[in-house]
């Protein structure tokens, strides 16, 4: 009954002003930017050639020449970390792309059509949930061969139902809203209404979920590479660096600590960014904190 907007129309502060006052958005955004910059920089410059083996300088501790030291094959750890960022980002971006590209249209279609088609789409989605990314990766290993593509596809397939459910869940209540009814009375069809009213009104939700899936993708890529189902040598990957460091835990724990910290910071940054975006893009979405 009571609509506070009746008393004082809501005048939101501009997005930029609110963003600059939002600590977790700022921190998360800064971390994500640093990782992205590091990855981009690695295309043109790394301190040493990434992945170049030189047994003579193996297991050097951190120094001015090798900031993070070298591993058991004498590879420069910092350079590997920088190139590893490329792998992490690329795999998880493509996986989110697959999820958004397939999942969102499916969810929108299911919500627009309802009925048998909608039911079928959503049932199929429920079904994919029974296959964790790891199991998909195991099953698809020989189709694509172990490597970045396998990881991308496996994580991407796992992302499809996530985005389909999200889009479907967000679209269904929108379809019953009166402004959609009004659009139908204005003679607009399902596709046009989806494009003009449904999709724009769930965009914020999709952006927030995309950041979350991005961070989950980075974790998943690391895990897959760790067990040998992901990126293969000589392509550097944080997950594989951890695998290689495992036997040296007692000798050089630094080799496990550095890539692990890189993963934690990146994921943490993306999650903070996601939380911040959730608050900033739509205050109604934000859980009370």
């Amino acid at each position: 009954m009571t609509h506070p907007a009746d008393i004082a129309p809501r005048v939101p502060r501009p997005f930029v002003a609110r963003a600059l006052a939002h600590p977790s958005f700022l921190l998360g955004g800064a971390i994500a930017l640093v990782v992205a910059a590091m990855a981009l920089l690695s295309f043109v410059w790394t301190p040493h050639e990434a992945g170049a083996i030189e047994i003579a300088r193996k297991l050097r501790p951190p120094s001015t020449e090798h900031w993070f030291g070298t591993d058991q094959f004498g590879r420069d750890v910092l350079s590997m970390i920088m190139r590893g960022a490329v792998t992490s980002m690329a795999v998880s971006f493509v996986a989110v792309g697959i999820g958004v590209g397939l999942g969102v249209p499916l969810g929108l279609l299911a919500a627009a059509r309802r009925g048998v088609l909608g039911e079928a789409v959503m049932r199929a989605n429920d079904f994919v949930f029974a296959f964790p990314a790891l199991i998909i990766a195991i099953m698809l290993r020989d189709v694509f061969g172990p490597g970045a593509v396998n990881a991308m596809v496996a994580i991407g397939i796992f992302n499809v139902p996530v985005f389909a459910r999200l889009a479907y869940g967000a679209a269904l209540p929108l379809w019953t809203r009166e402004f959609v009814m009004a659009a139908r009375v204005a003679g607009k069809g399902g596709a046009l209404i989806t494009l003009e009213h449904i999709l724009p009104n769930m965009l914020n939700l999709l952006i927030v979920q995309a950041t979350v899936q991005l961070s989950l993708g980075i974790l998943a890529e690391a895990a897959l590479s760790y067990v040998g189902l992901g990126v293969q040598p000589p392509q550097p990957s944080w997950g594989r660096m951890l695998n290689e460091a495992q036997t040296l835990m007692a000798l050089a724990p630094r080799l496990a600590l550095i890539p692990g910290t890189a993963i934690v910071l990146t994921v943490l940054g993306l999650n903070l960014l996601g939380d911040g975006l959730r608050d900033l893009l739509d205050p109604r979405l934000a859980r009370e904190r």
Partner: peptide, 16 residues
Amino acid sequence: RRDVQVVFQDPYGSFD
């Protein structure tokens, strides 16, 4: 649709 239009109840929900 041109000849028959509609006004809904909720003044908060009827606009995008």
